[in-house]
């Protein structure tokens, strides 16, 4: 899970790359690292372009991370979901909780455009 900070228009956005499989066995790792990232910035982008598979506990972890971000007036935006991962988000209605972008750049730029966490749905 590569992580980098990007500063756009004075907003620091953390971009995390998720890869491989996010399932019950490894989802606690994301949970822990995500709290570390959130120490640095409440604005996160999860770049999922290399994420092949997600199960419900992986999904639960991402939703948990979002909840923490929202508590700190931040947000988590998702980028580059492949068709299978997107299907899980649609099936479980988790899609409605997130702003989803086609790539990490667009997702990060959207923070810059509207710095205050704005949920449209």
């Amino acid at each position: 899970m590569a992580f980098r900070l990007d500063t756009l228009n004075g907003i620091t956005v953390g971009i995390a790359e998720l890869n491989g499989r996010l399932v019950a066995e490894n989802s606690t790792i994301l949970q822990k690292t995500c709290s570390d990232w959130q120490q640095k910035t409440p604005f996160l982008v999860f770049d999922c372009s290399n994420l092949d598979f997600i199960d419900s506990s992986g999904l639960g972890t991402i939703v948990g991370c979002l909840r923490k971000a929202l508590e700190k007036n931040g947000d988590i935006k998702l980028a580059g979901l492949n068709a299978k991962v997107a299907m899980v988000f649609e099936l479980t209605k988790a899609k409605k909780l997130f702003s989803i972008f086609s790539n990490a750049g667009e997702a990060a730029a959207s923070f810059a455009a509207s710095p205050v966490s704005s949920k449209t749905q």
């Binding site: 399932v23 598979f53 199960d55 419900s56 506990s57 068709a83 299978k84 299907m87 899980v88 099936l91 479980t92």
Partner: peptide, 11 residues
């Protein structure tokens, strides 16, 4: 035509 095989029994 994309097909996804679930691993969680509760989905």
């Amino acid at each position: 035509g994309v097909s996804l095989t679930m691993e969680d029994p509760h989905l």
